[in-house]
Design a protein around this nucleic acid. Structure first.
Length: 460
RNA sequence: UCCCCAGUAGCUCAGUCGGUAGAGCAGAUGGCUGUUAACCAUCGAGUCCGCGGUUCGAGUCCGUGCUGGGGAGCCA
């Protein structure tokens, strides 16, 4: 017999004679001659109310079922005489698939996020985390849909890499050596004997590879896992996270910004229309300002200011900040929050940052002191996008690499792309989990990843 | 890595001045009831995070370690 999903059943226009559902019990209440069972199968936030009559042959067993138990139910779906739900399932047959003893950690009341993190294997069974992971799935789909409709190609870039990309960010080493017995030369590990014949790492970005594909296919994007071995202990950082990195041939910085802004608006709109019930949960219980913030993001144009103007605004704000700011200094978290949460009260694009402290691949501006890059800052989550127009001029690129002390040999193929048919191009990286945080109001990145990896945390 | 906070029943928490552990929820039993985190009664439930110290006596004070969280830095 075909198993129905609860999300489909609840949308039914008419009663159904015989349906089969399977799921987990959220709660059970007794009445005089029957028992109410709230069943959830993960297909939606809502439960299906099951009526289990005492005429069922295994009623004594059913009466002892507790929160968390899994069952299979055959019955007739009819209009519910009670308030609070349109449909209910009058069971003709209930099979118990798995019991849930009294020490089942999840109860029908609210738990806090700290505790749920310690039972990451069970928390998807709660309303909030079920909703989170359904939205995460839908957001992934929305990304592919967006780019497909714009004729971008989805490309896969290596997860194992030999170059340390931007030189920024600690990387995880990977090796096939037995670490207690690795070959050595002059006291140092001899990576020429290792699997790849040189030191290998987990990628921190697919950008350099994606550029090569953009310079062949036109517009491309990557969407995959990224790794940082930074000892970051914050609610916004994880050691393993997902990043979306579009890369577009013949785009300048401003076309790059236009795409990034449209992308964020489109994803927001997609989730609001396709996950409305799940989003309502977050609007009601997690963040009261969620809907107005998302609405504003979709309809209003993002503010755009240069880094230099940002510095002026901050210094003329009349506010005192912990860190002083002048040209050349990095915007601190407190400055970014001021811009996006207070001064503009919405998304802000800050562009043309100082050349110093910028990576070698960002295109040098004509003023020779700034580069053609941009960050997009969102209220509550901070930086969600970092992007730039890439340096396509061979001579400028090479002198920048020299300036920063990078070895050209390590990037020979990247430099090659500027020797043969070089072209202006641009791209950006969007932090997928930070987008999830923005859309749900969830304040900790550990709560938008099923099994998060952070320093000292790899339990699940 | 630095600064701050926390760790008590399966869960959420209380615990006064240092005097030997107590509520709600969950569970079990009984009652009531087309219920909505149902309700009422009864019962069982503890390595008070670990180690060391002060004290006649430590959940409580001191030191230290571990774990978790918040903020900062780094970034997406």
């Amino acid at each position: 017999m075909f198993r129905s999903k609860i999300n489909r059943l609840l949308k039914s226009e008419s009663p159904l004679d015989k349906v089969l559902v399977k799921g987990w019990i959220r709660t059970r209440r007794d009445s005089k001659s029957f028992s109410f069972i709230e069943l959830n199968d993960g297909s939606c936030l809502e439960n299906l109310q099951i009526i289990a009559s005492d005429t069922l042959e295994n009623y004594s067993q059913i009466k002892n079922l507790t929160t968390g138990a899994s069952i299979s139910v055959v019955g007739k779906m009819m209009e519910s005489p009670g308030k609070g739900q349109k449909w209910e399932l009058d069971a003709t047959d209930i099979h118990v698939l798995g019991l849930s003893p009294e020490n089942y950690p999840l109860q029908k009341k609210r738990h806090n996020d700290d505790f749920l993190r310690t039972i990451a294997h069970l928390r998807p069974r709660t309303n909030k985390y079920g909703a989170t992971f359904r939205i995460r799935s839908e957001l992934s789909f929305a990304i592919h849909k967006y780019f497909r409709e714009k004729d971008f190609y989805y490309v896969h870039t290596p997860i194992i890499t030999a170059s340390d990309c931007e030189g920024a960010g600690e990387m995880f080493n990977i090796t096939a050596f037995d670490l207690d017995n690795a070959p050595k030369v002059d006291g140092k590990t001899d990576f020429s004997m290792d699997f790849f014949g040189k030191e290998a790492k987990l990628t921190v970005s697919g950008q350099l590879s994606a550029e090569m594909l953009a310079l062949a296919l036109g517009n491309v994007y990557t969407f995959g896992p990224t790794f940082r071995a930074e000892n970051s202990n914050t609610r916004r950082h994880a050691a393993e996270f997902w990043m979306v990195e579009p890369e577009m041939a013949f785009y300048d910085l401003f076309e790059n910004m236009d795409l990034a802004e449209d992308f964020i608006k489109s994803l927001t709109s997609h989730i609001l229309s396709h996950c409305s019930n799940d989003i309502k949960l977050f609007a009601n219980f997690v963040d009261k300002n969620l809907l107005s913030r998302l609405e504003k993001t979709m309809t209003e144009r993002f503010a755009r200011i240069t880094y230099e103007d940002a510095v002026k605004i901050i210094n003329n704000s009349g506010r005192t900040f912990e860190y002083d700011l002048s040209f050349g200094k990095a915007l601190q978290a407190e400055h970014e929050r001021f811009l996006t949460e207070i001064y503009f009260g919405g998304p802000v694009i800050v562009y043309h940052y100082p050349k110093d402290n910028s990576p070698f691949y960002m295109r040098l501006n004509d003023d020779h002191r700034t580069v053609a890059n941009m960050d997009i800052l969102l209220p509550t989550v901070g930086e969600i996008i970092g992007g730039s127009q890439r340096e396509e001029r061979l001579d400028v690129l090479v002198s920048r690499m020299d300036e920063l002390g990078l070895n050209q040999q390590d990037y020979w193929w990247y430099v090659d792309s500027r020797k043969f048919g070089t072209a202006p191009h641009s791209g950006f990286g969007l932090g997928f989990e930070r987008m999830m945080m923005f859309l749900t109001g969830i304040s900790n990145i550990r709560d938008v990843i099923a099994f998060p990896r952070t320093p000292k945390n790899i339990e699940f």
